[in-house]
Nucleic acid binder design. Structure first.
Lengths: 237, 237
DNA sequence: CTATTTTTATACATACTATTTAATAACAAC
DNA sequence: GTTGTTATTAAATAGTATGTATAAAAATAG
């Protein structure tokens, strides 16, 4: 009962989210052009085979992410790309298979390179005791995984994600907070670690970890920047 | 017909957005605690004097921004802060009056300082001809305003916003795109320019502008960083 | 050319059924 | 008795259907 094909409705998520995803992907892929008017509510209801309520909730969801805008009489319009909120985890998930994966990851790295070193610096200064303890826990587990005979890739990704995510949470800056989730989403959907990552990167993580724990923001920033340079090497320009 | 006590009606925006804003502000201010269950749909409908349709659309909107999560039987829960999407323009608008303004702006500057110099560097390399022309237009107008006898603060803010916003659009990186809107929102709602800004900052903007037009990414990055240091001086630690 | 009506899209309301799921009760096994 | 499993129940959201209200563009009357 669980395993059957995604097929149509009754699958995983709620109905309006599925409809929203379908529409979003048509927008993201360009199948629905910017500034164009999408079909009317009743047409879309028929097309997707859902009620107007469900469809309207889907439209509201996409409006909230900057993809659509509705006005009475004129219809629902695809807003221009400049207003799409690419810093929304759900939207990022929906990008899967839309654009070139390497290019997408490379662009993300372009942002990460600017933000994460500063986040590490902030975390070194502002992390609470609880957060430092948690970071310590996570790092210990990463060490265990790196030292193990067989490299557990899934576990590594899990704790690597937690490690970087926690750093954003520890900045004490609300604007850095969302990057933890964005990074988590990227790790889960687009960035595929190779088995060599664990052994090669653990020392880089140790430098970041130590600097944050020592409250040395400059060192944390540098260690993070160095780490990201290593990561960058895996992607084409 | 109904609810003439009217908690919300009579304002400008659509009903479900108004309801969403009300709930969002209660969450953001902590009046609705994290992980707590908010009243049931029917209770909230009564409380706000709106239909279930409007209320559910409001809840969907807030769910999309990471503030709420609904499950049958258990109810609708306030998600923990770490998942709130503070990089959403609408959410940022709703923050007005919630937290200390100076602190909020200061934190924003903490992010801006990390991102904008890199955005300028990217723009110098990737801006299209059209974008360079547009940037030129905008900068010319900023010069006019700065040179004028009476400083038109409103106009200055308008073009200053456009200037910085366009730079993010010109990076050619989808993850930098949303910062244009975020910055626009911050300028419109939180950051209040003083009349001296025009005269003092126009030369700094010229350096950024020139570097981008010349395609000199290193110079653009440095000029932006210098500009942000000047801006930073206005805010307390 | 202006004012007004008509049309047509979304916005909102109401009432209903379906589904999910936590909690509980019933029951069996050890 | 304690435990573990399985129906049952009930309370919340999820979804459907259909109505009216309202806003804005377009047609039309004056």
């Amino acid at each position: 009962m669980i395993g059957d094909f995604d097929s149509i409705a009754g699958s995983k998520r709620s109905l309006h989210v599925q409809v929203a995803r379908e529409i979003a992907r048509k927008i993201l892929s360009g199948e629905l052009a910017q500034n164009s008017i999408i079909p009317s509510e009743i047409d879309l209801c028929e097309q997707f085979g859902v009620s107007r309520t469900a469809l309207r909730e889907a439209v509201k969801l996409l409006t909230s992410k900057g993809l659509l805008k509705s006005k009475p009489k004129v219809g629902t319009k695809v807003v221009e790309r400049a207003y799409w909120n690419f810093l929304d985890s759900q939207l990022i998930e929906w990008m899967d298979g839309i654009s070139d994966n390497d290019e997408f990851c490379s662009q993300f790295l372009g942002l990460r390179g600017a933000i994460e070193p500063e986040a590490c610096a902030l975390a070194a200064r502002h992390a609470t005791i609880e957060q430092r303890m948690k970071l310590s826990e996570i790092f210990d587990k990463m060490c265990d995984i790196a030292k193990a005979d067989v490299f557990d890739q899934e576990q590594w990704t899990k704790f690597d994600t937690q490690f970087h995510s926690l750093i954003f949470n520890a900045t004490g800056n609300v604007f850095y907070l969302p990057f933890g989730n964005i990074l988590t989403t990227m790790f889960a959907n687009f960035i595929h670690h190779t088995s060599e990552d664990g052994s090669t990167c653990i020392e880089e993580h140790r430098k970041i970890y130590s600097a944050i724990m020592a409250g040395n923001s400059e060192k944390a920033r540098a260690a993070s920047a160095a780490h990201l340079l290593t990561v960058k090497d895996k992607y084409p320009a």
